Amino acid sequence: MKIAFYGSSLVSAYWNGAATYYRGLLRALADKGYDITFYEPDVYDRQKNRDIDPPEWCKVVVYEGTVEALKAVARCAGEADIVVKASGVGFEDDLLLDEVLDASRLNALKIFWDVDAPATLAELRAAPEHPLRKALQRIDLVMTYGGGDPVVNAYRSLGARDCIPIYNALDPQTHHPVPDDGRFSADLGFLGNRLPDREARVEHFFLEPASRLTDKTFLLGGSGWQDKLMSSNVNYIGHVSTRDHNAFNVTPKAVLNISRASMAENGFSPATRVFEAAGAGACLITDYWEGIELFLKPGEEVLVARDGQDVVDILAGLTSEQALAIGKNSLQRVLADHTYASRAETVDALFRQHMGARMEAAE
């Protein structure tokens, strides 16, 4: 079956945290025989900061950030059996959704794939006339990056026919243990772009502990932090290419996951870096969010901090031996239970179920 997937970017993770999610899941679906074309706009300098070349398992179509170009690629939806419009494409999202739905064949499976459901739902609640509210009537299935029952129930209450979370996972071909790299030496590393609903939490969970633990070294990677006030023991290195993520994760004694505020409040939304760090065999410290025990066992496979003081206490008592043991345990867990191959099994079953139901209804 042919999939037309309209998203932010497959080839660039620059200001695009969903890239590794797309790569892992779509590669796994391609391995199951799907013929996939990914359509992405040339915006935010992403094409100037590519992490990968277009892969052999997916055709990538890059279009200019113009309405004319958008409408041209939207018409390609008419060639697909399954049409996916992701959230956060980054250029005229509402128009793109309408154009894609208009172009899709009557019997095509039409999906809205929300990679930031808590934020999207907040927008919908605040705007009764939001275009997505009306579009839900034309969409067969909403799939989400995460969110659990709160997100599922919220989407159904807004008129979605169905909503299924497909959680982040590990692609072992991309994220795996590598040797230490001296560029990333530190007691604690954090990798994340500077975003409005994350900044205060980064201050609380990372920058404040760094200012208190002056005898320890901290490593900050990601875009947008260059003018942020930070203590002298924080080494800010800017954007980190995905080709260096494994080394960034495995070299520090521990790495930190800090959820965006909306995802932490909602729960059941493990970030990609949770599985990427575990896949590299890193010792992961994560901020607390409801549902974490469904993915990694606190205390054995992950360390959990409810506030900045917890980060201070964990680092003060963490030995190298403990860190190595936690990294080993987390790697074993994600390889067993949380790979994109297993997520693709779920997605494939959902696609076939919904396509089968459509065919029965047409007979």
Rank of each mutant, 00 (worst) to 15 (best):
123 E>M: 11
124 L>E: 05
124 L>V: 05
125 R>H: 08
125 R>L: 07
126 A>L: 14
128 P>M: 12
129 E>P: 00
129 E>A: 12
129 E>D: 15
130 H>T: 02
130 H>M: 09
131 P>M: 13
131 P>L: 14
132 L>N: 10
132 L>T: 09
132 L>I: 14
133 R>K: 13
133 R>L: 15
134 K>V: 09
134 K>P: 00
135 A>L: 14
136 L>P: 04
136 L>Y: 09
136 L>K: 06
137 Q>V: 07
138 R>W: 15
138 R>S: 14
138 R>H: 14
138 R>E: 14
140 D>I: 12
141 L>G: 03
141 L>M: 15
141 L>D: 04
143 M>C: 10
143 M>V: 14
143 M>I: 15
143 M>R: 04
144 T>M: 11
144 T>D: 09
145 Y>F: 15
145 Y>A: 07
146 G>Y: 11
147 G>T: 07
147 G>D: 06
147 G>M: 08
148 G>F: 07
149 D>Y: 13
149 D>S: 13
149 D>Q: 14
150 P>I: 06
150 P>G: 05
151 V>W: 01
152 V>Y: 06
152 V>F: 08
152 V>C: 01
152 V>A: 03
153 N>C: 08
153 N>R: 14
153 N>K: 13
153 N>Y: 08
154 A>W: 00
156 R>I: 12
156 R>Y: 05
157 S>N: 10
157 S>T: 08
157 S>E: 14
157 S>C: 06
157 S>R: 10
158 L>A: 02
158 L>R: 00
159 G>L: 10
159 G>E: 09
159 G>Y: 09
159 G>W: 11
160 A>H: 02
161 R>D: 02
161 R>S: 12
161 R>Y: 09
162 D>H: 06
163 C>R: 01
163 C>N: 02
164 I>S: 00
164 I>C: 04
165 P>S: 03
166 I>F: 15
166 I>K: 01
168 N>Q: 13
168 N>T: 11
168 N>V: 01
168 N>S: 15
168 N>I: 04
168 N>W: 03
169 A>F: 00
170 L>E: 01
170 L>F: 05
170 L>I: 08
171 D>Y: 01
172 P>D: 06
172 P>I: 01
172 P>F: 03
173 Q>L: 15
173 Q>I: 09
173 Q>H: 12
